[in-house]
Amino acid sequence: MVLAVEAKRLSVGYEELEELLWAVREASFEVGEGEAFCIVGESGSGKSTVASAIAGILPPHAVTDGELRIWGKLVVKGNERSYEGVRGRLVTYVPQSPGASLNPYLEIGDQFYHVLNNLYGLNRREALEKARAYLKMAGLEPDAVLDRYPHELSGGMQQRAAIALSLSTGAKILVADEPTSSLDAHLRLQIVELLKRLRVEAGLTLIFITHDMLLAGALSERIAVMYAGYLVELGPAREVLRKPLHPYTSMLIESVPVLGIKRPLKTYAGEPPGPGKLGKGCPFYDRCPFRLGVCAAETPPAKEVGESHHVACWLY
C-alpha cells in the first residue's frame, strides 16, 4: 500500500509572546492511499493543527519538528517546510465555515477560474468547463451556481461549492476540517453522504477532522483520538468505538447524546488544558478516574494493544 500521509514524531507549535506553545506533540501516524481517516478531539486538542500541517497551510510563525511526508515527498523536516508541488496539487482542504472562506466578492465561477488559472494556467472557458463537472459531482446544478456570489447560496450549497472547488484541483488527498459543524442536522447528513460518495467516485484519500466520535465511526475506517496535543489512541474505527482503550476515548463516546438511546451522560470533571499548560506526565492525568502513580511522573508512550490498535496510556 502506498502511503498518502506519513507523520513521524510530528510536533507543531506556535510562537506567542516570546513563548513557544506546542499544539501537537510528537504525533506518529500513517494514512494509506484511498483510506478514510478521522482525527477526533475537542477544541485545543491540536486536531486542526494536524490538518493544517497536512494541507500545507500552517501560518509562517508556526514551528515544526519531526517529519511529515505526503505521497512520499518530505514536506516537513525539523523546522523546514516545503509544500511546493504538494499544496493544492496533491492535497486539498475544505475549511470549517464555507461562508467565511469563499471570496465574497467573486462569483463562484470566477473562484474556480482563479484557482485553476493559478495552478494550471487554464483559460476561462476551460476552467468553467471543469467547474461544471465538479459542481455536478458535488450535487449542485452548475447553471444555478456559477454566476452567483457566495452570499446568494444557502449554507449547504456553499459547503458543496467549497468541496467542488477543492476537488477541482485534481488533488487526491482531501483534508476536511469539521466541514459539517456549522450546518444544521439534516444538511450534516447530506454532506457526510457526499464525502462518502466522492471518496469512491474520485478515488480520494479522506482525512476528516471532527469532535463527534459517532460521525467519525460512520465515515471512516480508522480513528485517531487527540487530547491536549497528544495522539492518545489510534485504531480501526469499529475497534475504537466498541472497545475504547484510553479513558478519554470512552468518555468522548459516552458523553455524546444519541437520538433514540437514553442513558446517563458520562462526564469527568474538568476541561482540556490550554496550550502550554501541561506539566510532566499524562495529559489526561487531572481528569482520569483510573490514574496511577506513574501517570503523574511520565508521559505514556504509544503501545500496540490488539491488532493495529495503539494507545498511549499506562493502564496497558
Partner: peptide, 14 residues
Amino acid sequence: SYTLGVSNPPIPAS
C-alpha cells in the same frame, strides 16, 4: 438525519 445514512453504524458496546 441522525442515523447518518449508514445501514449498520458501529454502535459502541456501552
